[in-house]
Design a protein around this nucleic acid. Structure first.
Length: 762
DNA sequence: ATAGGGTTAG
C-alpha cells in the first residue's frame, strides 16, 4: 500500500535522470512499477532490488533506482543501478529500444503479463507499425535469449488489438527467422479470424508446426463454423479430428459443438451427442449438461430438460442458480408461469436464492402475460431485497410499458436510470426507439436515435426496423423504401426483416407493383426471402382480388424450400372468403391440415365470417362449438364476427346469447360488441330495451363509442319520439358530467345526429 | 454458462 502511494506520487515528479528527454517513459515506468508491486502483493525491499536487477538497465530500473533511497532498497541493487544510471545504453538513443529491452528482461524472468502491458502501450498509444518493430527486433536483439518470446508476444498483442495484418506480418517474419509462435498467440488469431477461411490456413500452419494445441484451439474453430451457420462443416471437422489424442482432452470443444447444434435448432443431434459422449471419449461435465438443458428449454422441451437435470444430479453434479434460471426461462417461453413458481420454491428448498436473472425472467414472464403491474410489483420486491436493477431488467419493463402505451411510466423509468447512472446499451435504445415509433412519437424516437449516435452506438437493424414500420404505418411507404435504399447505399447489411416491413407496407396499401419490385430486388441480391415475405405478397394480391396470382405464390414458397404457415393459409382463405369461393376455402383447409398446419382461432374466425356473410349462421355456430371441443378458444373478434352475422339477420336473441357466452368465457365485450347489440335492438324496433341496455352499461362504467349513442337517439328521432331522446340525453349527460371534454363532444354529436335523424341536416 | 429488442392473417 505504502509503495503504491509512493509510485503514484513519483508519477508526478519528473525523473531527474531523464529530465526533458522522453516524457512518455516516466509514465510507462510508473505504470509498470505499479503493476510489479501489485503483482507481488506488496512492497518488499528484497524483491525490489531483485526486480531492478532483473530489469537491467531499462527505464523502469533507472527510474526506480534514482527514486528509491536507502531506506527502501537493498544496498546491492542501488549500487548496481547507480552504475547504470551513469551509462544508459538505449534510453538516450531510442525509447522504443529501451522498452524492447524491458520486454526482454521481463521475458527472461517469465513475467509475461508485464511484458504484454508494455508492448500494448507501445502499439496502442503510439500506433507503432509492425515492420518498424520487426526491424528493431531483428537488428538489435537477434541472439538474445528471450528473443522468440518477445516476438511471439508482439504478434499476440497485435492480435489482441485486432490488428490482424500486423499480427500476421510478425508471424511471417518469425517463420522466416525460424521462430515458433506459441499456441496462445495462434488461438488469439484463430479467434479473430474464426469467421474467415484464413483461420483454416492458420490451422494448417499450427498442425504442421507441431506445437501442442490448447484446450481452446478446436473450440474456437468449431464456434466459428457454428456462428457462420456451417453446422455440417463443424460436425465433420469434429468427426475427423476426434481420433486425435489432444482433441479428446478438450471437453470445451465438445460442449461448443453441442451449443452450436442447439443454437441451430437441432436439439435432437445435441441430445445424441451427449449420449454418445462416452463413445467419443469425452467425459461430460457440468457445462455439457447445462448446454443441453439450455438447448432443450429453447426448443420447448422443458420436461425433458428437467429430467436431464435430475439425471445429472444422480451423476453427482448439483444444480446451481444458472441451471434453475435456464429451466425457469424454459417455462417462461412456454407461458407456464405456474411451473415457474414451483421451480422457485424448489430452488429455495435446495438452499439457492433467486438472483437478478431469476427476477428478470419472472418480470418478463409477467409482462408477456399482460400483467405489467405485477411485473412492476416484482421490481419493488427486488428493490426491497436489496437488488439493483440492471439494464436488462429496465429494458424488459420499458418494453412492456411501451407496448401497453404507458408512456408516462416509461419516462419515469428512464429518469430513474439516469439518476442511478445506468448507461443505456444498444438493446435498450432499440427498445425505446421502437416503443416511441409504435406510440407515434416519431420526434422522440429520432431524438433518442441522435443521443444513441452521439454515444457512438451504431444503430442496427432492430432500430431501422422500428423506423421503417412507423413510416409504413403512417402512410409513408415510398419514404420507407427510400430509407431502405439509403441504408443499402451506405453499405449496411440489410436483412430480410427490413425488406419484409416495406414489402408489407406496399401490400397493405394494395401497391403490389411496389411489393413485387422489392421482392425481385431481394432475389437479385441473393437474400433469401422468408415466409413472411410471401405472406405479405399474398396479402397484397388478395387485396386487389388477384386470387390466382396469390395462390401461385403459395407454390413459390415451397419452391424456395420454405414451409407455409397458418398465416399463409389464413390470408388466402380470407381472400377466397371475400370472393365467396367455398370450394377453394375447403380445398385450402384440407391442404393445410394435410400438411399438419393447424388452423387457429384467426383461421376459424375468417371462415365464420365467410359463412355469416352468406347467412349460413348455423354452420358458423357449429364451427364455434368445434373450436371449443378442439380447445381453440374463441376470442372477442370471433364472437363479434358471429354477433355481426346474427345482427344482419336481425336475430337479437342469438346476438345476446353470444354476448352472454362471451361473459361466461371471461371475454370482455368490446365497443364493437355493444354497437352491434344496440343497433340490432334498434333495428328490431326494441328501442326501449336498447335504452335500458345502454344505461345499464353506463352504470357499470363501460366506455362506449359514439355510434352506440347516436344509434339510439337516431332510432328515437326516427320513431318520432324526440322527447324520449332528450330525456335519454340528460341521463347520459349525468354519467359524463365529470368529464367536461367528453360531455361537450357528446352534446355536439347528439345535436348533429338528431338533426340528421330529423332530416334537417345532411 | 442463464435474463432484454424488429416483420405477416380475422
Amino acid at each position: 500500500m505504502l509503495f503504491r502511494r509512493k509510485i503514484r506520487s513519483l508519477r508526478r515528479i519528473p525523473c531527474p535522470c531523464f529530465a526533458g528527454k522522453h516524457p512518455l517513459s516516466s509514465v510507462a515506468a510508473a505504470d509498470a512499477a505499479e503493476e510489479l508491486v501489485s503483482d507481488s502483493g506488496g512492497w518488499d525491499p528484497k524483491s525490489c532490488s531483485r526486480d531492478i536487477l532483473a530489469l537491467s538497465n531499462l527505464e523502469l530500473g533507472l527510474y526506480l533506482s534514482c527514486r528509491s533511497n536507502s531506506n527502501v532498497v537493498a544496498e546491492k541493487g542501488v549500487l548496481k543501478q547507480k552504475e547504470m544510471v551513469s551509462c544508459p545504453r538505449w534510453s538516450e538513443q531510442d525509447p522504443m529500444l529501451a522498452r524492447l529491452e524491458v520486454c526482454h528482461a521481463l521475458a527472461k524472468e517469465g513475467r509475461l503479463r508485464q511484458m504484454r502491458k508494455i508492448l500494448r502501450q507501445m502499439l496502442g498509444d503510439e500506433g507503432t507499425s509492425s515492420s518498424l518493430l520487426c526491424e528493431l527486433l531483428c537488428t538489435n536483439f537477434k541472439d538474445w535469449d528471450s528473443n522468440s518470446i518477445v516476438w511471439d508476444m508482439l504478434a499476440n498483442v497485435y492480435a489482441r488489438l485486432e490488428m490482424i495484418h500486423d499480427a500476421l506480418f510478425v508471424l511471417s517474419k518469425m517463420a522466416a527467422l525460424d521462430m515458433q509462435a506459441s499456441i496462445s498467440t495462434y488461438d488469439r488469431l484463430l479467434f479473430n479470424l474464426r469467421h474467415t477461411e484464413i483461420a483454416w490456413d492458420l490451422y494448417e500452419e499450427i498442425k504442421s508446426s507441431g506445437v501442442s494445441y490448447s484446450e481452446y484451439t478446436f473450440k474456437i474453430l468449431i464456434d466459428g463454423l457454428c456462428k457462420q451457420g456451417r453446422l455440417q462443416h463443424a460436425i465433420s471437422f469434429f468427426q475427423t479430428e476426434r481420433g486425435n489424442k489432444e482433441f479428446n482432452r478438450c471437453i470445451v470443444t465438445f460442449n461448443s459443438l453441442m451449443a452450436g447444434v442447439c443454437n441451430a435448432g437441432f436439439v435432437e443431434i445435441a441430445r445424441s451427442l451427449l449420449s454418445l459422449s462416452f463413445k467419443y471419449g469425452f467425459l461430460p461435465n457440468k457445462h455439457s449438461y447445462t448446454t443441453l438443458i439450455h438447448g432443450l428449454c429453447l426448443a420447448g422441451y422443458v420436461d425433458e430438460a428437467l429430467e436431464l437435470s435430475e439425471y445429472m444430479q444422480t451423476d453427482g453434479i448439483e444444480l446451481d442458480v444458472v441451471i434453475y434460471n435456464i429451466l425457469i426461462n424454459g417455462y417462461r417461453l412456454l407461458g407456464l408461469m405456474s411451473e415457474i413458481w414451483k421451480l422457485i420454491r424448489m430452488m429455495i428448498q435446495h438452499g439457492l436464492q433467486p438472483d437478478l436473472v431469476t427476477y428478470t425472467i419472472l418480470i418478463t414472464g409477467l409482462c408477456e402475460g399482460g400483467n405489467v403491474d405485477e411485473g412492476l410489483k416484482m421490481r419493488k420486491e427486488m428493490l426491497s431485497r436489496g437488488f439493483k436493477l440492471n439494464i436488462v431488467t429496465y429494458s424488459v419493463l420499458v418494453n412492456a410499458l411501451c407496448r401497453k402505451g404507458h408512456i408516462n411510466e416509461v419516462e419515469g423509468l428512464l429518469g430513474e436510470m439516469k439518476e442511478i447512472g445506468l448507461d443505456m446499451d444498444l438493446v435498450a435504445y432499440s427498445i425505446l426507439i421502437n416503443g416511441y415509433c409504435k406510440l407515434g412519437e416519431i420526434e422522440k424516437a429520432l431524438q433518442v436515435c441522435q443521443t444513441m449516435c452521439s454515444k457512438r452506438i451504431m444503430a442496427n437493424s432492430f432500430v431501422h426496423g422500428g423506423i421503417l414500420s412507423s413510416l409504413c404505418k403512417n402512410g409513408s411507404v415510398p419514404e420507407a423504401n427510400w430509407y431502405l435504399e439509403n441504408l443499402a447505399a451506405t453499405g449496411q447489411t440489410l436483412n430480410i426483416i427490413l425488406y419484409n416491413i416495406v414489402i408489407d407496407g406496399y401490400a397493405k396499401i394494395g401497391d403490389v407493383e411496389g411489393a413485387v419490385t422489392l421482392y425481385e430486388q431481394i432475389i437479385r441480391s441473393n437474400i433469401t426471402p422468408s415466409v413472411v415475405t410471401y405472406n405479405s405478397l399474398i396479402y397484397g394480391f388478395c387485396k386487389i382480388g388477384e386470387l390466382n396470382i396469390a395462390k401461385s405464390f403459395l407454390r413459390k414458397i415451397e419452391l424456395h424450400e420454405l414451409v407455409p404457415t397458418v398465416v399463409t393459409y389464413t390470408i388466402l382463405i380470407n381472400g377466397f372468403c371475400g370472393a365467396g369461393d367455398t370450394d377453394s376455402i375447403l380445398e385450402l383447409l384440407d391442404e393445410m391440415i394435410g400438411k399438419s398446419i393447424m388452423p387457429n382461432r384467426i383461421t376459424y374466425s375468417v371462415i365464420i365470417k365467410a359463412l355469416c356473410k352468406h347467412g349460413r349462421v348455423r354452420e358458423a355456430i357449429d364451427i364455434l362449438k368445434n373450436m371449443e371441443i378442439m380447445g381453440i378458444g374463441a376470442d372477442e373478434i370471433t364472437y363479434n364476427t358471429l354477433i355481426q352475422g346474427f345482427h344482419e339477420l336481425r336475430n337479437v336473441n342469438m346476438a345476446f346469447y353470444l354476448h352472454d357466452k362471451m361473459l361466461q368465457h371471461s371475454l370482455m365485450p368490446t365497443p364493437i360488441t355493444y354497437n352491434l347489440l344496440i343497433n340490432a335492438l334498434c333495428l328490431n324496433g326494441e328501442v326501449d330495451r336498447a335504452e335500458r341496455f345502454l344505461l345499464s352499461l353506463l352504470e357499470r362504467g363501460v366506455r362506449l363509442r359514439k355510434f352506440a349513442y347516436t344509434t339510439i337517439i337516431k332510432a328515437q328521432c326516427a320513431k318520432a319520439m324526440p322527447d324520449r331522446a332528450i330525456i335519454l340525453f340528460d341521463k347520459i349527460a349525468i354519467h359524463k358530467q365529470n368529464d367536461h371534454k367528453s360531455l361537450a363532444a357528446f352534446q355536439a354529436m347528439v345535436v348533429k345526429s338528431c338533426l340528421i335523424a330529423l332530416g334537417i341536416y345532411e
